[in-house]
Amino acid sequence: MCAVRGLTKTYAAVKGRRGAPGVPEVRATDGVELDVRRGEIFGLLGPNGAGKSTLVRQLTGLLRPDSGGVEILGHDIVRHPERAARILAYLGQESSALDELTVSLAAETTGRLRGLDARQARGERDAVLEELGLTPIAGRALKKLSGGQRRLACFAAALVGERPLLVLDEPTTGMDPVARRAVWAAVDRRRAERGTTVVLVTHNVIEAETVLDRVAVLDQGRVIACDTPAGLKERVAGEVRVELVWRDRAPLDVPEVAVLRERAVESGRRWTLRLAPEEARAAVATVTGGAAFAALDDFTLATPSLEDVYLALGGAARQGLVKA
């Protein structure tokens, strides 16, 4: 349905000017290969600056790649970027084009510009606003809404004028659980009724694990893994994540704790360790008994998440992904 071959885009270096340091050349996407199948929710996961948005902008015809190809439903998007607008609906991160419109007019105008006639646009607008529970605030300007409501209104605009492919760049940012559920219910309905395909950019691992059929993990412009969330997690199934939070500081005078330190990722009072199950058991025994326990504030043991997968795969950004 959507095939990406060897997609590469390099942003030119910026020369430093009077005191300001220059920015070196950045390869935002580096030989990206992907196959998105019809009817699936395909995720692009990665930390900030991994190249997710650059990749999406190339899929939607907004950015011309230096080399490589994008084919969506048999159309060459690199050669004919203007066709992308007739195949897919895109929800970007910015709402500035719609901010001063009412929710109702934003949805209707977007439908008109997607080629619907006036009657169709009004009909679809009403249906989508009702479906997403936006009818009570249809008359309010987007600018006056909370971040989550504004995001939902933009999502509504993306749904007016049906398209076989939805490209959503962090659609649920700032939304409350009710709004999130409305988004995924609307996506599922379109999938079930029309076989709609979704390409979803996210850096939220919880959401990625629950909604995605398959996920490509991006790091520094490259796809470092692509599989189902369960398949990816199997790769690190042999590991357990241990998190230790010390009250004040770690009791390094306990020799076992000093040994653990070498394998921990430290972040303030928090240590994160990835250990084999028997090692984890030994570590927990150490810190829950004797001198170490007095210094311990909290600890957790968890099976691996997509975040652990990302770090195990060698993701460069050691700060990991957002967990919320």
Binding site: R38, E71, L73, R163, V187, R191, T210, D213
Partner: peptide, 30 residues
């Protein structure tokens, strides 16, 4: 939260590409 298994979607199972890359019939544009 996604409750629809991809296998029951209309238009065939996952993994069956409806157009061969570089050839085949292109889908109708909106």
């Amino acid at each position: 939260m996604s409750v629809v298994p991809a296998e029951v979607l209309p238009g065939g199972a996952l993994g069956v590409e409806e157009t061969a890359p570089g050839g085949g019939a292109a889908a109708e544009l909106g």
